[in-house]
Every structure is written in C-alpha cells, then in structure tokens.
C-alpha cells in the first residue's frame, strides 16, 4: 500500500545529495520514509530533502524531517528542506515554524555550492 502512496528519487546538485519524495508523507508512510532517509543520509555529505512533489505532510511526516535533521546535525552534515512557497506542504512547515529549526528553501537552486 505504501508503495502506492510514496516513492522516491535522488539527484545531486551543487554537491548536495537531493532526496526527492513523491506522494504522501504521513503516519502510514513515515516509518518507511524515515528508514530510507536514514540510509541515504549515511552515504551523503550534504543532504537535502525535496518536498516539491509531496501532496500531504502530516505531523508524523514533520517528525521524520526533524529526526533526519537531528541525525544530520549529529553527523555535522549540512541539511536542508526544499519546499516551494504557496503549497500545502510549505504551509504546514510555516505554521509549525519549522524554519526555526531547519533550513527551508523554496527551490533546489538555492542550495549553495561548496
């Protein structure tokens, strides 16, 4: 079921390893997404999560983002969230003021080089 609700793709840009999530990031898919994200995080030097293709982000999904951010911080890895403004997901991020803990960018173009 979760395979229908969420799937992933990866790409690299400006030395950032970008993990693109497609579908819903909610209680149903959060465990799988957390495991996948932790695995990818281990092999990355700069880790960004692109939520541009996420349709729904629940509090369980936010918890995954915070957990991965925590892991990145513990490993001293640059960590960022990419979420275009105006979307449903970005609204959740804004409402919960996640920007106070995480680097939230509107586009992957904003990922710095170096």
């Amino acid at each position: 079921m979760s395979e229908q609700l969420i799937h992933y793709s990866t790409r690299e840009k400006n030395h950032w390893f970008i993990w693109e999530i497609h579908g819903n990031l909610d209680r149903t898919t959060s465990s799988e997404a957390a495991a996948e994200g932790e695995k990818l995080l281990q092999s990355s030097r700069k880790f960004a999560i692109d939520l541009s293709e996420v349709n729904y982000l629940s509090s369980a999904g936010v918890r995954v983002l915070l957990k991965l951010a925590q892991d990145a911080e513990e490993n001293n890895l640059p960590f960022a969230i990419v979420s275009p403004t105006g979307g449903m997901v970005r609204k959740v991020l804004d409402v919960s003021r996640l920007d106070m803990f995480l680097s939230i960018l509107s586009s992957s173009d904003a990922l710095d080089e170096g």
Binding site: L66, D94, V95, S96, R97, L98, M100, F101
Partner: peptide
C-alpha cells in the same frame, strides 16, 4: 496571525 513560536519539545532554550 500565524504562529511566531515553534512547536514544543524539539529544542529547549527557545
């Protein structure tokens, strides 16, 4: 207005 403060339980000293 939207919240100015973050969620609770994530980071202390805020």
């Amino acid at each position: 207005p939207l919240a100015k403060d973050p969620m609770l339980g994530v980071k202390d000293g805020i």
